[in-house]
Amino acid sequence: MRFRLLALYTLGGYAAALCLGVIGAMIAFQVIGRLIDKLSVALGAGGLNLSIPGLSEISGFLLVGASFLGLAYTYVHGGHIRVTLVTGQLPPRIRVFVELWCLSVALGLCLYWGWYVIVLVQDSIAFGEVSYGMVPVPLWIPQSAMLAGIALLALALFEAWLSTARTAVTRPSAFRIDDRGHE
């Protein structure tokens, strides 16, 4: 299957990688800061208190971004787990419709999930909700990363659904799933 919006899904993958890189950098700076503090105390200069306030909370938000923004990228590259024990044994004419049904369910659940994340983001903006940690982060920021990731996944599922539906209507006996789980 050829995804027409592969560049968009790849951008989501890069954003997820960036989130993970920022987490790694923040933790490295925190460790280095603690080592410098220990060294400073050992030399008698007193602690410098080199720490990143709210590190665990910010890392958690970045992890949410990495997890959700990488969903579509992982899907289009066949990284999600597929259980084809039953569907792999079906003849192509039946398998294409089973695959279409599975994609329909996945897309429906993704859209349902996305709808409620939209409601969540709207509520967070309306009520001015912020995190409870040392650094008050507006909650709509990490929730927007969730929403972007869900939207990208829904778009990728819709592309796969269209391609599978086209095959189901025009040439169902030619349907094949490759080793990455795509037509």
Rank of each mutant, 00 (worst) to 15 (best):
R82H: 09
V83F: 14
G108F: 11
A106I: 06
V105P: 12
S51Y: 12
T87I: 09
P92V: 00
S124E: 15
I125T: 07
L55C: 02
S59C: 11
G128C: 08
V64P: 04
L55W: 09
W101H: 05
F68Q: 09
G88S: 03
C102M: 14
I58R: 07
L111K: 08
T84F: 04
Y73S: 04
L107W: 12
L111H: 10
V98I: 13
F97T: 05
G54S: 03
A66Q: 03
I94C: 04
Y75M: 03
G54R: 03
H80G: 02
V105C: 12
S59Y: 04
C110H: 05
V86Q: 08
E57N: 04
Y132G: 13
I52N: 07
I58P: 01
G114W: 09
T74Y: 01
F68N: 05
E57Q: 10
Q89K: 15
L85N: 11
F97W: 15
A72V: 02
E99G: 06
I81M: 11
C110G: 15
V119K: 15
L100I: 03
F97A: 01
T74M: 07
G78V: 00
C102Y: 11
P53W: 06
T87G: 04
L62V: 01
A72C: 04
R82T: 06
F68S: 10
I58W: 07
F127E: 12
L120D: 13
V83N: 15
Y112I: 05
